[in-house]
Lab assay of single mutants.
Amino acid sequence: MTEYKLVVVGAGGVGKSALTIQLIQNHFVDEYDPTIEDSYRKQVVIDGETCLLDILDTAGQEEYSAMRDQYMRTGEGFLCVFAINNTKSFEDIHHYREQIKRVKDSEDVPMVLVGNKCDLPSRTVDTKQAQDLARSYGIPFIETSAKTRQGVDDAFYTLVREIRKHKEKMSKDGKKKKKKSKTKCVIM
């Protein structure tokens, strides 16, 4: 069974824990209790493949930012979460993405942009803004509501699919490099 290491990042209060708990335990946590770091595991079937999701729910508070490099190193894919009623959390996505790329030393890291709290009427981040940002990053965008469960499975499952595509691409690139290195030079 394939294991996928997913990391949920975003500013404090955007609903990272609520999304994760909704996926794992099928219930909505409405009281806000700032996370330092929590880890969850769940076995699911995605596109006919049974897999184990190892999900790291991270601290959004700035005082825990020193811990970010460590979990970013171990993560295979990242859910970059903002709240649709919090423009600052949307603007912060850029910083999370840049930090992930720096730590992973790669421009090509599996990510999904997630606009959470889409059940709320007080939207300050337009869907088109988020779609445009995701398009500019070359990553999928999904709106979710941890409260109603809308888009929750889709967000995590899409990230797994992005990781699969990335692994497939990397193995193809690896095979191309191996083929090239088999060419021999004969000096007579």
Score class of each variant (00 low, 15 high):
T183R: 03
S181R: 05
A11I: 12
L113T: 05
V103A: 05
S145F: 10
C51N: 08
S17F: 01
E107G: 10
V114N: 02
L6W: 05
E63V: 02
E98P: 03
E3R: 12
F90C: 06
P110A: 04
M170I: 10
Q43P: 11
T127M: 05
K178C: 05
T127W: 05
S65L: 05
M111H: 01
D153W: 04
Q70M: 13
V160E: 08
T183L: 07
V44T: 07
K172I: 04
H166S: 06
G13Q: 11
D33N: 01
I21E: 01
E37G: 15
A155F: 12
D57I: 00
P140A: 04
M188N: 12
S145A: 15
V112T: 10
S17Y: 01
V7D: 01
S39E: 04
R68W: 02
I100M: 13
D57R: 00
I55K: 00
E31H: 02
C185A: 13
V45A: 13
Q131G: 12
D132P: 14
M170T: 06
Y40W: 00
R41E: 05
D132W: 08
Q70N: 15
G12K: 05
K172W: 04
G12W: 15
A18H: 02
S181H: 03
I55H: 02
I84W: 13
N116T: 13
I55P: 01
E49M: 15
E3S: 11
A66T: 08
Q25F: 15
T158E: 10
D33T: 00
G60Y: 00
I24L: 15
Y96V: 05
D57F: 00
L120W: 12
Q129C: 07
K117H: 15
K5M: 04
T20W: 00
E107P: 06
K167C: 05
Y64F: 04
G15Q: 02
N86K: 07
P121I: 08
D108P: 04
D126V: 06
E107V: 08
V125I: 09
G138I: 04
C118P: 15
V125G: 11
V44I: 14
V9D: 04
Y32I: 00
I21T: 02
R161T: 13
K88Q: 14
T158M: 07
L133G: 09
D153C: 05
V9I: 11
R68C: 02
S17R: 01
T20I: 04
E91A: 09
V14D: 11
V7S: 10
D154Q: 07
G151E: 12
E31I: 04
S122P: 11
N85D: 07
G151T: 04
K42A: 04
K180E: 06
M67D: 02
Q43N: 11
S39G: 14
T35P: 00
K176W: 10
C118H: 09
R102Q: 14
Y64G: 01
L19D: 14
V112L: 10
F28C: 01
V29E: 03
I55C: 07
K104F: 15
D30N: 06
L159F: 02
L52Q: 13
K177Q: 14
C185V: 12
F28E: 00
V109K: 03
E107A: 09
D119R: 14
K104W: 14
I36S: 00
I55E: 00
C118E: 08
R41P: 00
A134N: 10
V45H: 11
D69T: 13
S181C: 10
F90S: 09
K175P: 03
C118D: 09
L56F: 03
V29Q: 04
E107L: 09
L53D: 02
Y157L: 07
I21A: 02
M72I: 03
E37Y: 15
F141L: 15
Q70H: 11
A83K: 08
Q150L: 09
G115Y: 13
K88D: 12
A18V: 12
G151C: 09
H166F: 06
L120I: 03
D38N: 01
D57E: 00
Y137R: 12
Q99I: 14
L23H: 13
L79W: 01
E143A: 06
R73N: 12
C51S: 12
R68V: 01
Y137L: 10
T124H: 08
I21K: 00
I21G: 02
D38Q: 00
A130F: 11
F28V: 01
G10Y: 02
T74Q: 13
T20F: 00
T2Q: 11
I142K: 08
M67I: 06
I46A: 12
K16A: 01
D132Y: 05
E63D: 04
V109T: 12
G151Q: 04
I21L: 04
S17P: 01
E98Q: 04
Q61F: 03
I93R: 12
K5S: 09
R68M: 02
V160K: 13
E63K: 02
S181W: 04
A18L: 00
D154N: 07
N116G: 08
P34T: 02
A130S: 08
K16M: 02
V114G: 01
K88A: 13
N26V: 04
A66H: 13
I142L: 07
G115R: 09
Y32A: 01
E76M: 11
N26A: 14
L6A: 11
C80V: 08
D126T: 07
V109S: 06
P110H: 03
Q131P: 11
M111T: 03
I46K: 05
R41C: 06
Q43T: 11
M72A: 04
L79S: 08
V125K: 08
K184Q: 07
R73K: 06
Q43M: 13
Y32R: 01
Y137Q: 09
D54R: 14
K175N: 08
D154C: 05
D108C: 09
V186F: 15
Q99F: 05
A155Q: 10
A155E: 06
A59Q: 00
S136C: 08
L53R: 02
Y64L: 02
H166P: 04
K176A: 15
G48K: 09
A11Y: 13
D47K: 14
L53N: 15
E31G: 02
C80W: 02
D69K: 05
E107K: 10
I142F: 10
R102W: 14
L52A: 15
M67S: 03
L56Q: 02
E62L: 03
K180A: 06
C185R: 11
K128V: 06
Y64K: 00
T35G: 00
V112Q: 06
E76G: 04
S122Q: 11
K178E: 09
Q43A: 11
K128Q: 07
V9A: 08
R41G: 04
T2P: 14
A146S: 03
A155T: 07
L23T: 14
T35I: 01
E76F: 10
Q25H: 05
L133E: 09
T124R: 10
C185F: 08
I84A: 14
H27V: 15
R123W: 06
T58V: 02
G12L: 04
I93S: 03
V125E: 12
L6F: 08
D108Q: 08
T20D: 02
E98K: 02
T74G: 10
V152H: 09
V109L: 08
